[in-house]
Design a protein around this nucleic acid. Structure first.
Length: 481
DNA sequence: TGAAATGTTGGGGCG
DNA sequence: ACGCCCCAACATTTC
């Protein structure tokens, strides 16, 4: 009797899994395989916290499979070699996997498909990149028209999702390597692994709980607030596919349709748009894989970055002297996650205040975010740096103090991550360097000693950056010249 | 999914 | 009552 391999990559779920479904249609004997790829571990974009989250999530998936009579086969090694071995061991006649559109994944899958019976089914996005194109077949490079085209395609529906199989039969002769127990997930990471947790969080976000209203209803107003838990906190689960993109999108669409107020409807649509941003950047990286190495707008490859190592270290360690930047950077290092608004603030500070190459920040984020995704992360950095598709104009510079006042008005986010500022009064929490010395003594926070003085003056830095960007544009050859 | 400078408007205090 | 000025609030422009 033949068997089918379900090659698991970033679809660690049984619910709404097209590759799993296709494999089971091919043969009732399923070989669920995860292969830890040494090439990915060796990548400078690898991160210990994300790896730990992956390993814990694999243990959850293994338990979910075991409860259905199946077994996860875990291996370490180059995927092509391992798949060939498992094909021989299991006698399977086909490999099914969800398509991943990142440059490395495409090279890897193309190499596998040349030698082995690989069938890519579904993918990490709701719609494959090629499905959202202009009339002439060219890709969109601006978000708004992309999102209109995306919304004109058939919308995902929860009643069309694929249910998790109840019973799965797996050949007994295959050996699984043990899932490594190192690295471990730090206790400060507030994302328990596993598909059940992803489903629980989605329900909580969409439906609310007995004591709390659903956050999707106030998402539009709360999503930018650093001091409120107003976002879905689903990104790590979407990253590793513990939740399918189309289940999330279907939930957003249906929340829009069922909203009882205009503001709840607007909020649900705002969240759907965030999911479409994810689709947009997956499509951009698919159509323009060179953005992983260089700016989408080539004239900005000429920017004369300062790339000061000490300034970069201060940024990574959260000691720039700007509380909102430092709080966010410490949150990232400790918890493996950062609020999206904070990502924009710290990214703008690195690129436009410190004048450090956006790729340095992109890499740091990949090394520390448990939701770190090549497409979304690259898109976000190029957007903030003003060098990408549909990017913020280069002169758009975030003021870290104004952003802080606007999105953390009471300073609770800052104090949560910077305990040395715990007793600084509200009037100075966004600009502690302006405290008179007597007040610094009174609240036990001496600037320059207990908390750093700002490493740069924002207004001076902004002027410097605008000049450097303008020079990059001026020295660029005219298009077509 | 900026910020700051500049322009416009309209209410209210005042002579 | 009227015009004038101030200035907050909002809109527009510019980088």
């Amino acid at each position: 009797m033949t068997a089918a391999i379900w090659w698991i990559r970033r679809d660690l779920r049984l619910t709404d899994n097209q590759a799993l479904h296709a494999a089971l249609n091919h043969s009732p004997h399923l070989v669920p395989v995860f292969i830890l790829d040494p090439a990915l571990l060796a990548s400078p974009d690898s991160g210990a916290k994300r790896l730990a989250f992956l390993l814990d999530s694999l243990r959850c998936l293994a338990a979910d499979l075991a409860s259905r009579g199946s077994r996860l086969i875990f291996r370490v090694g180059p995927p092509q070699e391992q798949l060939a071995t498992i094909l021989a061991e299991s006698g399977a006649s086909a490999i099914f996997a969800a398509e991943d559109f990142s440059p490395y994944a495409r090279r890897r899958d193309a190499a596998v498909a040349r030698n082995l019976p690989l069938c890519l089914v579904g993918g990490v996005s709701v719609h494959p990149p090629a499905a959202v194109r202009k009339a002439d077949g060219s890709p969109y490079t601006v978000f708004t028209p992309f999102s209109k085209a995306w919304k004109s395609l058939p919308l995902p529906r929860s009643n069309a999702l694929l249910p998790a199989p109840r019973q799965i039969s797996t050949p007994l002769n295959l050996v699984s390597d043990p899932i490594p127990t190192e690295p471990t997930l730090p206790a400060a990471v507030p994302f328990p692994p596993g598909e059940a947790e992803a489903q629980r969080r989605l329900r909580l976000f969409i439906d609310g709980s007995a004591g709390a209203p659903a956050k999707i209803e106030t998402y539009a107003d709360h999503r930018n607030r650093l001091d409120l838990a107003g976002t879905s906190h689903l990104s790590p689960y979407l990253r590793l596919g513990m939740l399918s993109a189309r289940q999330a999108a279907a939930a957003a669409v249906e929340a829009m349709e069922q909203a009882s107020t205009a503001s709840a409807r607007r909020s649900a649509e705002t969240w759907l748009n965030e999911l479409i941003w994810r689709e947009f950047y997956i499509a951009i990286l698919h159509c323009f894989p060179q953005v992983r190495r260089s700016s989408f707008r080539p004239e900005f490859e000429r920017i004369a970055w300062r790339n000061d190592q000490r300034a970069f270290a201060a940024w990574t360690e959260g000691r720039t002297g700007y509380p909102v930047v430092d709080a966010a950077m410490r949150q990232l290092a400790e918890s493996g996650w950062m609020h999206n608004r904070a990502r924009m603030i710290v990214a703008s500070f690195l690129v436009k205040d410190l004048l450090i190459d956006w790729r340095w920040g992109e890499r740091w984020f990949m090394q520390h975010l448990i939701d770190g995704d090549p497409a979304a992360n690259n898109g976000g950095w190029q957007w903030t740096a003003g060098v990408g598709t549909d990017a913020a104009p280069y002169f758009r510079v975030f003021n870290p103090v104004l952003q802080s006042q606007k999105f953390d008005p009471g300073g609770t986010f800052i104090r949560r991550w910077l305990p040395e500022l715990a007793r600084v009064p509200d009037a100075h929490i966004h600009t502690p360097w302006e405290m008179p010395l007597a007040l610094q003594r009174q609240v036990g926070c001496l600037i320059g000693q207990d908390y750093p003085r700002p490493i740069i003056d924002h207004l001076e830095a902004k002027e410097r950056t605008l000049a450097v960007y303008a020079q990059a544009r001026e020295t660029a050859p005219e298009p077509g010249a």
